[in-house]
Computed example of a mutant assay.
Amino acid sequence: MVEDRITDGERIAEVFRAEIAGRETGGLDRLSITEDGTTTVLLDGAPLATVEPGENGLEIRFQRAKEMVRTTAGDAGLETRSENGPVTIVVESAAATKRATDLLATIAERIE
């Protein structure tokens, strides 16, 4: 049996947006997404992260709560990168969007 693994960033972004929109518990009720040329995840109306699809996955760049993001992402088995400020989480497949959504829920619950 052949397994299809979705690694296209645009498709992963669709799955990610659906996860955020479809769940309203555990901190996710505080999140929303805006799209005005850039996809931005908002926490209580303030920017938390930007979302950028690529050829090999989805990158979520956090400007806030960077140390919390690094620690929580590591615990969830998500790859992180830090480049001159933001902490970037790499979501390599559609299956990994659940872990990324759970990361956002945890961050939303911990930020006042």
Score class of each variant (00 low, 15 high):
Arg110Tyr: 09
Thr50Met: 02
Ala73Trp: 12
Ala94Tyr: 00
Ala108Tyr: 14
Thr101Phe: 11
Gln63Met: 09
Arg61Gly: 05
Ile33Ser: 03
Leu78Lys: 06
Val41Lys: 09
Glu24Lys: 15
Thr88Ile: 07
Arg81Pro: 01
Asn56Trp: 14
Ala76Leu: 07
Glu55Tyr: 00
Leu31Gly: 02
Met68His: 09
Met1Asn: 12
Glu14Val: 05
Ala95Asp: 08
Gly45Pro: 03
Val2Gly: 02
Ala95His: 14
Glu14Lys: 10
Thr40His: 01
Lys66Val: 03
Arg11Val: 09
Val87Gly: 04
Asp102Lys: 12
Ala46Thr: 10
Leu31Asn: 11
Asp29Ala: 14
Val91Thr: 08
Glu19Thr: 01
Ser32Asn: 05
Glu35Asn: 10
Thr40Asp: 02
Arg30Leu: 07
Gly45Arg: 06
Glu92Phe: 02
Glu10Pro: 01
Leu28Pro: 05
Gly22Tyr: 13
Glu52Met: 05
Thr97Ala: 06
Gln63Leu: 12
Leu31Arg: 01
Arg30Met: 09
Ala96His: 06
Gly27Ile: 09
Glu14Arg: 10
Thr34Lys: 08
Lys98Arg: 13
Gly27Ala: 08
Asp75Val: 14
Met68Thr: 06
Leu28Asn: 04
Gly27Trp: 09
Gly85Cys: 07
Gly37Lys: 10
Gly37Arg: 14
Gly27Met: 06
Ala73Asp: 08
Ala94Asp: 13
Leu28Ser: 04
Asp44Val: 03
Thr97Phe: 04
Ala21Pro: 04
Leu42Pro: 00
Leu104Gly: 08
Thr40Tyr: 00
Glu52Phe: 08
Ala13Pro: 00
Gly45Thr: 11
Thr106Met: 03
Ala13Ile: 02
Arg99Ile: 01
Ile107Tyr: 05
Leu48Gln: 02
Leu58Tyr: 02
Arg17Tyr: 01
Glu79Lys: 07
Ser82His: 03
Glu109Ala: 08
Leu43Phe: 07
Ala95Gln: 15
Glu24Cys: 14
Ala13His: 05
Gly85Phe: 05
Ile107Met: 03
Gly37Glu: 12
Thr50Gln: 10
Ala13Arg: 15
Thr88Ser: 12
Asp4Leu: 13
Thr40Asn: 02
Leu43Gln: 04
Asp36Arg: 12
Val41Gln: 11
Asp36Gln: 12
Pro47Trp: 00
Ala105Tyr: 07
Glu67Arg: 04
Ser32Met: 05
Asp44Ala: 12
Thr101Ala: 10
Gly22Lys: 04
Pro47Met: 01
Ile6His: 02
